[in-house]
């Protein structure tokens, strides 16, 4: 009887205190203007990605020669390109590729970067090995390395994801490693060892959660870089191959006829800018929110 009443009280306070913590977190998030405006932009673009088929009735790759190079109008909001395809439709569907590539790259780099970072922080011998590879990869400019990998693998969306992941994993691994090294030296990690915790438990249950906030911040920035780099690669013809629309290759198509058809470069350009701006704002905001050091300094 008595024990059951104790647990009841316990679980009740547990939920109320979790709710309390969640409420504080939400309030702090909404008080941060950077984070809020960033997330509004990112949400807006994500909605466009999801709702693409609803937003437009045109086909993004079907050509329609009598409609070529029409300026923006009621039927073609962003005008048409040199094959008569609706630029609005192409930009909307292009967002799926840009954001899809960005999101996949973020997921892959976060997971692999976290693993590399944690293990190289924990095992010193592994550290030397992994970090020298890391240094090697980081020595190349991101775009150059991505182009080289794509040249070897061939231009395909999945290959773009692989190339960008390889390019950005070292950045994440570095960031995680530096945090994990500080966490590793904390007394509470030693305390867990003294309590008989095994290495995997220490790494994943005690060091990893303490690295999550820098990882989240890093991930938003990687997302932004990945969107830009994907666009650059497609612009250079090394990324998503035409006729599949991607912001980068729409820009490239419009490049030669920028004087006659400004809409072909302006709209995909604006989309890239908005996405990257949104992600960067969100990243800055999250960094202020999650990092206790900058948090106080800014206020």
């Amino acid at each position: 009887m008595e024990t059951s009443s104790v647990t009841m009280v316990g679980t009740k306070t547990a939920t109320s205190s979790t709710k309390h913590h969640a409420k504080i977190a939400v309030n702090r998030f909404f008080a941060n203007r950077l984070a809020v405006s960033g997330s509004i932009l990112v949400l807006f673009i994500s909605l466009i990605c999801i709702l693409a088929p609803v937003l437009t009735s045109y086909n993004p790759i079907e050509m329609n020669v009598q409609d070529r190079l029409k300026p923006p109008s009621a039927s073609h909001w962003f005008g048409t390109d040199e094959f008569g395809r609706d630029v609005f439709t192409r930009v909307v569907y292009g967002s799926r590729i840009s954001m899809g590539v960005g999101f996949s790259v973020v997921m892959i780099t976060s997971i692999i970067g976290l693993i590399f970072g944690l293990y190289s922080a924990y095992y010193r011998r592994l550290d030397n090995f992994l970090m020298r590879i890391n240094d090697g990869l980081m020595a190349f400019p991101a775009i150059l390395l991505a182009i080289a990998i794509l040249a070897a693998l061939g231009p395909k969306m999945s290959n773009v994801i692989i190339a960008l992941s390889v390019v950005y994993i070292p950045t994440v691994a570095r960031a995680i490693r530096s945090v994990a090294i500080t966490v590793r030296e904390q007394t509470y990690i030693e305390a867990i060892r003294a309590l008989g915790g095994k290495s995997w438990r220490i790494i994943w249950l005690h060091i990893a959660p303490n690295c999550l906030s820098p990882l989240i911040v890093q991930a938003t920035f990687i997302f932004a870089y990945a969107v830009i780099t994907e666009a650059s690669l497609s612009f250079l013809g090394a990324g998503t191959p035409p006729p599949e629309p991607s912001w980068g290759n729409i820009l490239n198509d419009g490049r030669t006829i920028m004087k006659q058809a400004w809409w072909m470069t302006v709209f995909p350009g604006l989309s890239i800018m908005m996405t990257v701006l949104g992600l960067n704002l969100l990243g800055d905001g999250l960094r202020d929110l999650l990092d206790p050091h900058t948090n106080k300094a800014k206020k």
Binding site: T187, Y188, A191, L195, G196, L205, N210
Partner: peptide
């Protein structure tokens, strides 16, 4: 043996608890 038969209390209570877990979580873990 660690924690089960021989356990250790550290000198600095300020940094000996993991900030991301509730104290209940940390005791029940062991």
């Amino acid at each position: 043996i660690r924690g089960n038969q021989i356990s250790m209390i550290f000198q600095d209570p300020m940094s000996s608890l993991n900030p991301v877990y509730t104290v209940g979580n940390q005791i029940s873990e062991s």
